[in-house]
Structures are given as structure tokens and as C-alpha cells.
Design a protein around this nucleic acid. Structure first.
Lengths: 132, 132
DNA sequence: ATGAGGCATAGAGTGCTGTCAATATAGACG
DNA sequence: CGTCTATATTGACAGCACTCTATGCCTCAT
């Protein structure tokens, strides 16, 4: 259809960039990372991700997830698809049921990208001299 | 206008929740955290945040930021406002110029919320027993 | 085969978001 | 006091996102 040359899931892009505070993200890097954050930037998806990631084994059945929300089944299915296509969830069908597993490596990369300190110097005290 | 009982900036909410993979986020927690991620989930804002956070002193002048993008000045101003209202940027006017400073503590909390492993066990191997 | 249950997809409606041009505000400087 | 510069606000428009109902597909049991 459109993108079928890269086998890399979007989630892998988070590991491709230094932390936000270390050096400026390039325009291309930003375009690659933003979809990951966008996938998480929704209350329902955030809860879904947390529900699945905190489940024993890091996976959960859709049947259980549906019951945890006051939303229609297609809506939950839609949100799971968004997280899956972002590379944050793995999908596996076992018999009649479908299980989604959290990609904790992707979460870890993303967390490091956002939260890691500048470099060796932890603090950001400085305030330095007159900027410009 | 609508919600004005809490003086807490949205960015503080990230520190209020355990890591995603540790225990399920409540609906309220998710609603509080999502705006933070939504603020970052945009390529331009992600670059802005990175530009400011990686600047010496963790702050940057709007005049410099405008030149870093091929966007109109109001658009940059809008994005900075979004990041500011999310609690990710501090605003300070010095003379004619306005400086935005990165709230690295907010970034750190958010990064930890997303990326931190389940609990003490760093690995995400587990796979544990049969889920359900 | 036939039916039932679990999940995905399609299509529509509504609201939000990113961008711009135009304008307002606010301070500095003649 | 008037003007110039830096930033913010307003209003408009296009596109996207969240939700629903309706429907299709797949798997298992009968």
C-alpha cells in the first residue's frame, strides 16, 4: 500500500535517539518518535497499556480488557490496534482468544528518551551565563 | 473558567503514579497523565522541548526557537503555550525577550512512569507461568 | 453443517488539533 | 509621545481522532 520497505516497527525508533535533554532531536527523529507518544497520549490507551504491562507475564486477553472499560468492544479493539501498530503491543491469537503483550523494551527506550538527564552531569542547575 | 480548584500543574501528576508496568493506572490517573504525553506527542513540540532542554542552562529564547523551524511565529508561540500549560516549560520574560525553561523534573517523572521496569527485577524476560 | 461467541473492520458523526494571516499587547527607544 | 520590535491572541479552515452501530470473519461445539 504505502510503507512496506521497512520492517522496523515504529517502536524501535525510540532506541535510535539520544535523550531529549542531551541534544536537539532532528526533525526526522521527531517525526519518528511522535507517533509512539501519540499512541500513549490517550487515557484509554494509557490504561490499556498499563493493564497489559502490569499483568502477570506482561500479557492480557482482550476478553478481560473489554470488561475493564465502559466502552464498546469495537472501541477497545480500535485502541489496541493503535498500540499494536505503534509497536507497543504484540498480538497473538490462541484459539478463540487474542492476547496482547506489552513490549517493555519499547517502553523502556521511550522512557529513557524522555526522562534521562543531559549526560554525565545529572543536575540541570547551572543557569549558566547570559544565554544569547 | 472551568477547573480551578487545583493549583497543581499537570506535570506534577506524573510523579503521582507508579510506573505503567507496575500496576494498572486508574482512570483518573490516566486522565491526568495523558495531557502530558499529548503535549509531547507532536513532532514540532518534541523538537522544541529537546531544543530547550538541551540548551545550556536548560532554557532558550523564543527568538532563537522561531528561526529553527519553517513555521510561522504564531504557530511556534502556540506550541510553546501548549508545552507551558502542560507544565513542561517555564516561562520568563526578560526585557523584550521571553525565555522558556525545560522542567526536567517533569520529564524525569514522565520518563520513569513510562519506562521503569515492573519492580525490583530489572529484566522483562519473565514470561512467568500460563497467564489465564 | 449449523450455530454461537470472540474479535476485527467499515462507515458515519462529532469534536479536537495544527496551521495560517491578521491583529493585539507590551516594552524599549528615540 | 510615537514608533519599532518581540511575542501573544483571535478567527478560520482543513484534517485527524474517538466513539458508536452494524456487519463480517474465524474458531469451536453441537
Amino acid at each position: 500500500m504505502s510503507k512496506s520497505l521497512l520492517v522496523l516497527s515504529p517502536a524501535d525508533t525510540a532506541a535510535c535517539c539520544p535523550p531529549l535533554s542531551r541534544e536537539p532531536l532532528s526533525a526526522e527523529q521527531a517525526v519518528q518518535v511522535a507517533p509512539l507518544l501519540k499512541a500513549l497520549a490517550e487515557p484509554v490507551r494509557l490504561r490499556l497499556m498499563s493493564l497489559i504491562a502490569s499483568h502477570p507475564g506482561g500479557e492480557a486477553c482482550v476478553c478481560d480488557l473489554n470488561d475493564a472499560f465502559d466502552l464498546s468492544q469495537p472501541t477497545i479493539s480500535h485502541h489496541l490496534k493503535v498500540l499494536h501498530e505503534a509497536g507497543l503491543l504484540d498480538r497473538e491469537k490462541r484459539g478463540v482468544w487474542v492476547y496482547y503483550r506489552a513490549r517493555t523494551e519499547a517502553l523502556a527506550s521511550l522512557g529513557a528518551l524522555i526522562g534521562d538527564p543531559p549526560s554525565g552531569r545529572a543536575g540541570r542547575q547551572s543557569m549558566a551565563e547570559t544565554p544569547s
